[in-house]
Design a protein around this nucleic acid. Structure first.
Lengths: 225, 225
DNA sequence: TCCCCGATATAGACAATGTATATATACGAC
DNA sequence: GTCGTATATATACATTGTCTATATCGGGGA
């Protein structure tokens, strides 16, 4: 409970640090009760302030949702970095583990994940904080993709991802996006139950591993650029 | 205005065919004003009935949303079938065109697409109509995948998708799901503007073609089952 | 033919929410 | 210390989902 250490931060007005308190309460609400429970009045209640206080920090509900979603993005980014941390020298495996961690994050934090890609946030451009947070996430993925591309996809025709050098396709810019699409779609559909099986961490790992292997094979073979 | 031709359908009570009228109004509302405009009272107003009339056909708001989403799924299914219709003898190209049509549908009907995968509908199991509609869509994709698998991915190592025979990977069940994931993720991220370019039909086609080529290559090479 | 019952639609009410306007309070600069 | 401004409150209103009770229509059995 770091919330009581107020009046020492530079922003120490009435409440002390209301904006962060509201975002924190919002995160908790989403995790515990789902996205529909994330209301301006609810976070105000949780922070112990009047129902109009949040308007000093968020012009409307969408801005609050965006701020909470940005925080969720940062958690995802941390999860990805953590998954990659122990594989410094092996960019290819790093990339695969990042993909797996992405799907695992989704099934382990379903409400956060749904929040991040909620239709309410359709235009991220309207919310700079959110745009920056999601850009940070993408840059982690793109960075991993780029490093593994310089190192090169594996040489062996079949089998799991291993380190090896090989030619790189020309579409350097779009391939990370496509890779992201794949793991993202996997996460969404698995969460939605469209796979006909519960969204467990085990299933996430299994599908993600298979999918990344598949994509890796495609990359290795090249696209005829 | 086909709404006045009532009293001839078998369900000709007070309104005539209120349920369909409500779903139709809901579709229009979503398309024109977005998902957040889809309220029970709004569709009731649009149908010219009292704000409680919808409760005779939908137990709550979520059920209405599910019914509208099911209709949207059916439209997507039609779009997929249409894209595949003119390519009867070429299952591989059929599959690719289905994937492209999927992404194109998303960018051409952004609000419908967002509705279909809204977090509000997280548990499709609670809404049989929706579950059946989405299963129909998936079966179209899975069917195309299966036919092209029996025909076999292309032989040539690079280049666009063409008809040719080749060995098939063993993961027959999961591969369609992964393929669906890929085009779905593509659609979602493109719509969200995460690709840093407007979600036009042209971009949809470009990315989808590249992604399906990539996946095709991966499939052709096999996964070492 | 008439009546009655269930399916359908209405009326009114209530709590919760987002948001506008007006007002109060506290911090920090002068 | 005074004052302006950032911060928080109080009050109010429209909109929404949903509950309870009531009204109306239309077809099946007497």
């Amino acid at each position: 409970m770091p919330r009581k250490g107020r009046r020492k931060d530079r922003r120490g007005y009435h409440h002390g640090d209301l904006r962060n308190a509201l975002v924190g309460a919002g995160l908790q609400l989403v995790v515990e009760e789902g996205l529909q429970a994330l209301s301006l009045r609810a976070v105000a209640r949780a922070a112990g302030v009047s129902h109009m206080a949040p308007y000093n920090h968020f012009p409307d509900r969408a801005s609050l949702v965006a701020a909470v979603a940005a925080e969720a993005y940062d958690r995802l980014t941390s999860a990805l970095l953590e998954a990659m941390a122990s594989l410094r020298g092996q960019p290819a495996r790093q990339l695969q583990e990042a993909g797996i961690a992405y799907v695992r994050f989704a099934v382990e934090n379903p409400e956060l994940f749904r929040l991040m890609f909620s239709p309410e946030l359709a235009d991220t451009s309207a919310h700079p904080v959110l745009a920056e947070a999601s850009a940070r996430t993408l840059s982690v993925l793109a960075g991993a993709m780029q490093r593994s591309a310089s190192a090169g996809p594996r040489t062996a025709s079949t089998g799991p991802v291993t380190e090896a050098s090989a030619p790189v396709t020309g579409e350097a810019r779009v391939v990370p996006l496509i890779a992201w699409s794949m793991v993202h779609g996997l996460a969404v559909l698995l969460l939605d139950g469209q796979f006909g099986e519960p969204a467990t961490a085990e299933a996430a790992e299994r599908y993600a591993r298979l999918a990344t292997d598949l994509m890796w094979t495609g990359l290795r073979s090249g696209l005829g650029g």
